[in-house]
């Protein structure tokens, strides 16, 4: 159970402009730079068909939002959290047509939430465009109590709900939008190793 080298990690790409009737672009923190880089390759009129949602991170440089605003998207929205961004995407997709492209860039936590929202709206996960930027912090689901622990940077980590010490496996569920956490000292309680910063 506590095996190393699991291969079911999500694979993220590099954002590039896609053909489409409209575009929904979500960026968090450093993800703004991925959008600006994508903009260099965007055909004329691309942003006129785009809706941009930005989630600033604490300590973000203010010019990030300005840079995105200057792209001239049909609509620009700044929201407070990844969950707000996912909710905004869900609202936009409610009456969307085929030909709507979804792009998301930022932390794995944000990507997970937006992919979930888009899948719920009927988009196959494989057709959502993702690029990982910023912190490697993980969302972790405790397999025992099912509680989610956000912004996990250590291995192992204490479940914020049931308190068990969890090994964070490289096994990722898109549906839950989280990595799997499994009790690390189940066979000999109290023998958990000290947490180390691993996902920065």
């Amino acid at each position: 159970m506590l095996v190393e080298g699991i291969k079911s990690r999500p694979v993220y790409g590099v954002l590039a402009p896609q053909p489409g009737l409209s575009h929904i672009i979500v960026a968090e923190g450093e993800g703004a730079e991925a959008v600006l880089r994508m903009a260099e390759a965007a055909p004329a009129g691309f942003f006129a068909k785009s809706h941009l949602i930005f989630v600033p991170r604490g300590g973000d440089r203010p010019d990030r939002a300005d840079g995105l605003r200057a792209l001239g998207a049909a609509d620009f929205q700044s929201v407070g959290s990844p969950a707000d961004a996912a909710a905004a995407v869900a609202t936009l997709l409610r009456d969307a047509k085929m030909g709507t492209q979804v792009y998301v860039t930022g932390t794995e936590g944000l990507i997970g939430l937006v992919v979930q929202a888009a899948e719920t709206a009927g988009i196959d996960h494989a057709s959502i465009h993702t690029e990982h930027r910023g912190s490697m912090a993980r969302r972790v689901q405790c397999v025992h109590c099912k509680g989610i622990t956000e912004n996990v940077t250590t291995q192992p980590v204490k479940c914020s709900h049931c308190g068990l010490t969890l090994l964070v496996r490289d096994h990722y569920s898109r549906r839950i939008g989280a990595f799997q956490g499994v009790c690390i000292d189940a066979e000999e309680p109290g023998t958990a190793p000290r947490p180390e910063e691993l996902f920065k």
Binding site: M1, V143, H144, L164, Q180, V182, C183, A186, E187, E188, P189
Partner: peptide
């Protein structure tokens, strides 16, 4: 099950 691993692992 992994769900109950903390119960049967011992």
């Amino acid at each position: 099950s992994p769900e109950n691993y903390h119960k049967w692992g011992t």
